[in-house]
Amino acid sequence: MKVTVNGKVDELPDNSSIAELLAARNLPPEIVIISLNDEVIKRDRWGTLRLNPNDSLDIVRIIGGG
C-alpha cells in the first residue's frame, strides 16, 4: 500500500504497523516522534496500530536548534 512519509510517497506491505515501518527503514524507535494524519501517536501503540493506504505520517526527531 502507498503511504506518505515525511512528505514523500512510500510503499509498505498492507497492514504494516508503525513499529514495522521503523524497523524496515532502520529508524531507531527511541528517538523518533510519530504524527499520523496530524495526530501524535504514543509509543505504546506503535506495535498494534495498523496503517491504512494513503495515511500521512510525519516522523520527526529532536535536534539542536536556536
Binding site: 512528505g7 529532536i62 539542536g64
Partner: peptide
C-alpha cells in the same frame, strides 16, 4: 535550552 524538531532523514 531550546531544541528543534525535524523530520528524520532515512
Amino acid at each position: 535550552v531550546t531544541v528543534a524538531l525535524r523530520r528524520v532523514d532515512y
